[in-house]
Design a binder for these strands. Structure first.
Length: 593
RNA sequence: GCGUUCGUAGCUCAGCUGGAUAGAGCGACGGACUUCGAAUCCGUAGGUCGGGGGUUCGAGCCCCUCCGGACGCACCA
C-alpha cells in the first residue's frame, strides 16, 4: 500500500489506513478461515462524514466466495477485529459497509503530533528520486505570452511539491535558443545596421522577429541570406555568435522579470536551452545508429518506434538528423533525455508541455527504451495540459487576435486586485495595498491555472478568479487573513497562543482536524499523479471547513479559557496548513486584505 | 483514415483511481451582522453523469460501439 512513494515513522492518515488495513485483514482471516488470508479489506476514507471517518468495503465482494450474505460476513469480521481502542464505533451499514469512527481522544493525540511537527504531518518520501523537471521553456526573441503560462505555473508547483517531499529536483528550463529562425532574425538585425554590442529590449526583439519573419516569407533572396546566417551561427562565426548571445542575454532579462513578478522559482542556473545539447547531437546519433536503433530513410537518419502510424498507414519517424544534415528538435529531445539519465542520474523525468505534444514525447520515450536509456527504475512522464480559452469558448487572444502577453496579463491582474483591495479596505496604507494586490492578483492567476484537472481546457474569467466566493485564491487567502485577524485580537487582549492541547469538542473542530491530517496523503497523490488540483481541492475544503468553524465556534469569545486556548492553537495549525499548501502552489499568504 | 483527449446542474468545475440517495461555486429564490472582518455562513430549487450495449454483488470511473468538440500524424519547434 505504501509502495514507492510511501512513508514511514510518523503517525498520519496513511499510517491509520495501513493499521486499519492490517487489522481488518487479520480479522477476516480469523472470522472466515485461513483460506481468506491476505484478503484486501478495502479500507477507504469515508466520503461522507455521517458514515464515520473510515470505511471497510470487503464484505460485498466476499459474499460469493464465502457463501454467506455480506452483512453476516461484515458482522462476523467486526466481532473479530482488534482496533486497540482508536475507534469509538465500528458498525455495519447498508448492504455490508463497515463504518469506523475514531475516538476524539485519538484524534486529539494526532493533533498533538501535528502541532509538534514542522512539516504539518507530511513525511519525507521513502524513496527519494532525482527529478529532472522540464517546464516553462520560453523562446528567445519572443515575449512570453499565455502559451507559456501553464507550463510555467504547473511546473513550478510540481517542483515545489516534489522538493518538499524530499526529492532532489533539477529544474530544466528548455529555452528555445536555437534553430532556423535565428538565421533570419540575426540577418535582419545585421542588415538594419545594428551591432552586436547594441542594447535591445525584448519589445524591440519582438518587433524584429515579426519583421524578419515577414521578409523571410516574402523575399527569397533574404531567405537565402538567412539560411547562410544559420550556417554561420552553427559554424561559430564570431560576429554572428555575438549577435546571438546578445539576443539571449536580453531575452533572459525579460523572462527573469516575469518569473520574479510571478514568484516562479526559475533562475539563471536553470536555463538549459536547446543549444546546450548541440555538442551531444552527433554522438547521440552515432550511438543510436551503432545500436541499430536509428536507420537511414529518405536521406534522413530516423528512429521508428513501433506502434506509431501516420496518415498513410506508414510508420512515423523521429528524425535524428534531417536530410540536409541539420538537427531538429527530435534530436535535441533525445539528447536531453540521454543527458538527464546518464549525466544527471535522474530517476524520474518530467516534461510539463502542452497536450498537443503528447505523441512526440511518447515517441521520444519509446526511442529512449529502444536505446536502453530508459531502464527499470527510471520513469519518464509527459505532463500534458489543455489550453486557455476566452469566455467565448475560443482560444484566449486579444481582440486583435494576438497572443496575450504575460506582462499585460500580470499588469491587469495587479490592477484589478488593487481596485478590489481599495474598494474593500480603503483604510490600508498605499504600500500595503501594493503588496496585497500582488499576492491576490498573482495568486488568482496561478490558482485558476492549477485548480482544475490540467488535461482539460479552461475558460479564463477575471471575475470568477478574483471572486471571494468559490474555489479561488482570494477565498483561501481570506481564510488565512481571518486567522491572523483572530491573532491580532488575541494580541490586543494580551492572550498568547501557547502550548495548550487541542480539544475537539464540536463537529467543526473535529472536521478541521480530520482534514489537516490528510495533507500528507494528498501530497503523496500529487507527487504520483502530478496533478496539482488535488492539493487545491484539499485547500478549498480546509478553508471551507474553517469558514464554517469561524461562524459557529467563537474563539476569543469562547465560553471558557480552556476552549479559547484550544481554539487558538487549532487556528494556528489551520493557518500553518493553509500557508504550507498555498506555498507549495507558489501562492503567497497575507495578514490582511 | 489512424491515434490521443474531453463531454457531469442554466454557467464554471470536483468526484480521493470500482463503493452507500452523484458534490461544490456562480446565477435564481429565501434566511443570518449591537458579538473574532457579511471579503462570510445557512437553507431551497436544479441531474436519464453525451447515447446505447457489456463486465461486476456494485460503473460517472473499466471494456466495446456510436454522437459531438479539441488536438496530433516526415525533415517547423
Amino acid at each position: 500500500m505504501t509502495g514507492r512513494y510511501g512513508r514511514s515513522g510518523r503517525l498520519n492518515m496513511t499510517d491509520i489506513q495501513a493499521f486499519l488495513q492490517q487489522a481488518f485483514s487479520a480479522a477476516i482471516e480469523r472470522a472466515l478461515g485461513t483460506g481468506f488470508a491476505g484478503t484486501d479489506p478495502v479500507v477507504r476514507c469515508a466520503n461522507d462524514s455521517t458514515h464515520g471517518d473510515w470505511q471497510a468495503n470487503f464484505a460485498m465482494s466476499l459474499a460469493k466466495r464465502a457463501g454467506r450474505p455480506p452483512r453476516a460476513i461484515a458482522e462476523a469480521v467486526v466481532a473479530a477485529v482488534e482496533l486497540g481502542g482508536i475507534a469509538s464505533s465500528v458498525e455495519v451499514a447498508g448492504p455490508g459497509f463497515v463504518n469506523i469512527r475514531l475516538t476524539d481522544a485519538f484524534l486529539e493525540t494526532m493533533m498533538a503530533e501535528l502541532v509538534a511537527d514542522q512539516r504539518c504531518g507530511v513525511s519525507i518520501a521513502a524513496h527519494r528520486d532525482i527529478v529532472a523537471i522540464d517546464y516553462s521553456a520560453p523562446n528567445v526573441a519572443k515575449e512570453m505570452h499565455v502559451g507559456h503560462i501553464r507550463s510555467t505555473i504547473i511546473g513550478d508547483a510540481l517542483s515545489r511539491v516534489l522538493e518538499f517531499l524530499g526529492h532532489q529536483v533539477l529544474r530544466r528550463n528548455h529555452l528555445g535558443d536555437w534553430g532556423t529562425q535565428f538565421g533570419m532574425l540575426i540577418e535582419h538585425v545585421v542588415e538594419l545596421g545594428k551591432t552586436s554590442g547594441q542594447h535591445h529590449d525584448i519589445g524591440d526583439l519582438n518587433a524584429l522577429y515579426r519583421e524578419s519573419k515577414a521578409r523571410f516569407d516574402l523575399d527569397p533572396d533574404f531567405a537565402e541570406r538567412a539560411r547562410h546566417r544559420v550556417v554561420a551561427l552553427q559554424a561559430g562565426e564570431p560576429d554572428t555568435v555575438g549577435f546571438w548571445k546578445q539576443l539571449i542575454v536580453e531575452s533572459k532579462k525579460h523572462f527573469g522579470k516575469i518569473y520574479a513578478q510571478l514568484g516562479v522559482r526559475l533562475a539563471d542556473e536553470d536555463y538549459f536551452g536547446e543549444s546546450f545539447y548541440n555538442s551531444m547531437l552527433a554522438p547521440v546519433m552515432d550511438e543510436l545508429v551503432a545500436a541499430g536503433v536509428a536507420v537511414e530513410s529518405e536521406g534522413a537518419v530516423c528512429v521508428f518506434p513501433p506502434g506509431f502510424k501516420g496518415r498513410d498507414g506508414e510508420p512515423v519517424p523521429l528524425i535524428v538528423r534531417k536530410g540536409d544534415g541539420g538537427y531538429g528538435y527530435d534530436a535535441t529531445d533525445l539528447a536531453a533525455l540521454r543527458h538527464r539519465i546518464h549525466d544527471l542520474k535522474a530517476t524520474r523525468l518530467i516534461y510539463v508541455v502542452g497536450a498537443p505534444q503528447k505523441q512526440h514525447f511518447d515517441m521520444i520515450f519509446a526511442a529512449g527504451k529502444m536505446a536502453g536509456w530508459l531502464k527499470d527504475g527510471i520513469s519518464a512522464e509527459h505532463v500534458p495540459f489543455g489550453s486557455i480559452l476566452g469566455e467565448d469558448g475560443k482560444p484566449f487572444k486579444t481582440r486583435a487576435g494576438d497572443n496575450v502577453k504575460l506582462t499585460d496579463l500580470i499588469d491587469e491582474a495587479l490592477r484589478r486586485a488593487r481596485t478590489i483591495v481599495t474598494e474593500k479596505s480603503p483604510s490600508l496604507a498605499e504600500t500595503e495595498k501594493d503588496g496585497i494586490a500582488s499576492a491576490i492578483g498573482i495568486g488568482a492567476i496561478k490558482y485558476v491555472d492549477l485548480c482544475n484537472d490540467r488535461i482539460k481546457d479552461y475558460v479564463f474569467s477575471w471575475d470568477r478568479m478574483l471572486a471571494f466566493e468559490g474555489n479561488t485564491a482570494p477565498y483561501l487567502q481570506n481564510a488565512y487573513v481571518r486567522i491572523q485577524g483572530i491573532f491580532r485580537k488575541a494580541a490586543e487582549a494580551g492572550v498568547s497562543i501557547g502550548a495548550a492541547a487541542i480539544r475537539l469538542g464540536t463537529a467543526e473542530e473535529r472536521a478541521l482536524a480530520m482534514q489537516m491530517l490528510k495533507l500528507g496523503d494528498v501530497l503523496d497523490q500529487v507527487s504520483r499523479s502530478l496533478e496539482p488540483h488535488r492539493l487545491c481541492t484539499w485547500l478549498y475544503d480546509l478553508a471551507s471547513i474553517f469558514h464554517g468553524f469561524y461562524e459557529k465556534c467563537p474563539v476569543m469569545n469562547a465560553e471558557n479559557a480552556a476552549i479559547k486556548a484550544s481554539r487558538l492553537a487549532l487556528c494556528r495549525e489551520v493557518g500553518r496548513c493553509l500557508q504550507l499548501g498555498l506555498s507549495l502552489l507558489g501562492i503567497a499568504t497575507i495578514d490582511q486584505m
